[in-house]
Simulated assay, not measured.
Amino acid sequence: MADNWTWSEGSKMKVCFVTTGATAPFTELIRAVLQRSAIDALRDAAYTHLLVQYGVAKDVYDTFAIDARSHIQTQPEKGELIIEGMSFRPEGLMEQFRLVQQSNGLAISHAGSGSILEALRYGVPLIVVPNTALLDNHQEDLAVAMERSNYLIRGDVNDLAPAIRKAEDFRRKMAQFPPITSGKHRETKSFAAIMDETLGVLE
Rank of each mutant, 00 (worst) to 15 (best):
T6C: 08
S8L: 08
E9L: 14
G10C: 07
G10S: 03
S11H: 09
K12H: 12
K12S: 15
G21C: 10
A24K: 00
P25V: 10
T27D: 14
T27F: 06
E28P: 04
R31P: 03
L34W: 05
Q35A: 15
R36A: 14
R36P: 06
S37Y: 00
D40I: 08
A41H: 04
L42Y: 03
R43C: 13
D44L: 15
H49Q: 09
L50N: 00
L51D: 01
V56H: 13
V56G: 03
V60D: 14
T63R: 08
A65N: 12
I66E: 15
D67E: 15
H71S: 09
I72H: 06
Q75F: 05
P76N: 11
K78Q: 07
G79D: 10
E80P: 08
L81M: 09
I82L: 12
G85Y: 03
F88I: 04
R89N: 13
E91L: 03
G92V: 04
F97M: 09
L99Q: 02
S103K: 03
N104A: 06
N104C: 12
H110D: 11
G114S: 13
S115D: 09
L117N: 10
A119M: 05
L120N: 04
L120R: 03
R121M: 06
I127R: 09
P130L: 02
N131A: 07
A133M: 15
N137R: 14
H138T: 06
D141R: 14
V144S: 12
A145T: 01
M146I: 07
N150C: 05
Y151P: 03
Y151R: 03
L152P: 12
L152V: 14
I153V: 13
R154E: 14
R154K: 14
G155R: 08
G155L: 12
V157Y: 03
D159Y: 06
P162F: 04
P162C: 04
A163Y: 02
K166S: 11
K166I: 00
K166A: 12
A167S: 15
F170D: 04
F170P: 01
R171K: 12
Q176A: 13
F177E: 06
P178D: 07
P178F: 04
P179E: 02
I180M: 11
T181H: 10
S182E: 13
G183A: 05
G183S: 07
K184H: 13
K184L: 13
A192K: 10
E197T: 14
E197H: 06
T198D: 10
L202N: 08
